[in-house]
Write a protein that binds this DNA or RNA. Structure first.
Lengths: 268, 268
DNA sequence: ACCGAAATTTGGGATATGCAACAAGTTGCG
DNA sequence: CGCAACTTGTTGCATATCCCAAATTTCGGT
């Protein structure tokens, strides 16, 4: 039944594949173009895009679709999409903890990306070492930032490099502070879900005089596979909401300094 | 005039910067979103986008803008903007020179980026080592590609890493072939304009069994600051048009094998 | 061959976006 | 102060896109 020639009409799955392939070549495709190309109605293409968008494989746009940013794969998490404003605020605040002339390490993650953007925007004069391609590109926008990238295996989902090479390389630097994200913060400590990131984070911590974790409150109470740090290793925690209950107690027992950005003003 | 608080209205240059920063994070931004975010009219944003698009820094789309197709920054060159189709063809052809299982090195450049796109599109099973973040991200899209990134100083204009660290790291790999771009090809040999790239390219050549240069014909006759390779080191030259005159003679004297993609057919 | 589910097309009204021209505001400068 | 150049806002209209729902076709199984 798989006719040698499916000449007339591509199946749904085929169209989807073609759309994604197309997006590898161009960052943006138009519904109308695809429709014409496939010989189907715009409505059909629209529905395909709708589906793919739901799967996080691409990003919808008026009139077409764009490639999903590498590293956006995690962002499918609905909660994160809604948390954009908070993360931005958090990142901006964390950026205020950096002084001109500092040398810092930054790891990969949505929150640290916001942090990097804030630093780039403020044009703080820094030297940064990172394993995240996104962070490197964002900071590279700032004329005041020197950026060094770690080598290693490229991890598509996070647009970052990992592996022993990355860690070995990082171990050659000594910086003033590191700014790390994390997937979970619970009484078990700071934990991470992405395989390979735990080693990166631990290495960064070791090479830094001060350690700062950027973790928004949606991660509170979550525990993931590997522990990155015990509370007595955390140093500073930058977050949007003060933790409560056992978690707050554990943090305070560990001597964690908690920083919370001031309430949002009316800027919009 | 730089009031302590310029929160009310961002200047044109600031908006431009923000838009580009935004595009580093997301592949697509909407006019309406930006307008609201900046507190300006959609028309203003539209004009900004219009300008940036004219400079080749991004790509317009209905309702917004997407990241520019190539590595963007060099592509401002008018000539290059017109050469997109040729480069695409060239890249696709060069990709056909790669076999499943190959280990290759790829350097940074608009042409090599097209090459990477073609490989990702074809899902050729390869291991690639590169110093270009763009190439890494593009190849990372392909499930069949393993990508390793070199470390080093991040060079914003090219979205790549350079420096001794990068070269030292590259020197640890031995691959089947390297695919390199170049800014100039003249009787003086293959030359490069970007500082730091020459060393990278030379290192990649040394670590590869075969060397292939991807140079479109617009570079013919151009000579830049530093020579990357003499003709007897070039190996294979992949280009769109056969060189003529003294250049052709010099290439043949050097034993350069020249590959030219077949004429474009009507496929659309 | 027939039937039912899923996919696709079709058509139309609601919305969003683009474009262009003009008005209003801002900045810089003599 | 006042002009000139530039930037931004506003308006009106053409166009493109979206979304919905019913009609039609295709597909897969019995």
């Amino acid at each position: 039944m798989v006719g040698a020639l499916a000449r007339k009409r591509l199946k749904k799955a085929d169209r989807r594949r073609r759309i994604l392939l197309e997006l590898r070549l161009k960052p943006h495709v138009r519904v109308t173009e695809l429709a014409e190309q496939f010989g189907v109605t715009t409505e059909t293409v629209r529905r395909d895009i709708e589906t793919l968008s739901g799967e996080g494989l691409l990003q919808r746009a008026h009139g077409g679709a764009s490639a999903a940013t590498p590293g956006t794969l995690r962002a499918m998490d609905e909660r994160r999409l809604e948390r954009v404003a908070e993360r931005e605020r958090l990142g901006r605040f964390a950026a205020s903890l950096v002084s001109d002339g500092d040398a810092i390490m930054i790891d990969a993650g949505t929150t640290t990306m916001e942090f990097a953007r804030a630093i780039a925007f403020a044009e703080t004069r820094i030297t940064a070492v990172t394993n995240s391609l996104q962070v490197a590109m964002i900071l590279g926008q700032s004329p005041a930032a020197r950026v060094r990238l770690a080598p290693g295996d490229y991890l598509r989902e996070e647009a970052a490099v990992i592996g022993t090479e990355a860690c070995d390389h990082l171990a050659r630097y000594n910086v003033d502070a590191c700014f790390l994200g994390a997937a979970g913060l619970s009484t078990a400590g700071v934990t991470e879900a992405v395989e390979g990131f735990d080693a990166i984070k631990r290495t960064m911590m070791q090479q830094s005089r001060a350690c700062r974790f950027l973790i928004d409150s949606s991660k509170f109470g979550r525990t993931h596979l590997s522990r990155v740090a015990r509370f007595d290793e955390v140093g500073t925690l930058v977050t949007d909401t003060a933790p409560e209950g056992p978690l707050a107690r554990a943090l305070s027992d560990g001597g964690v300094r908690i920083c919370i950005p001031p309430a949002p003003e009316e800027s919009a």
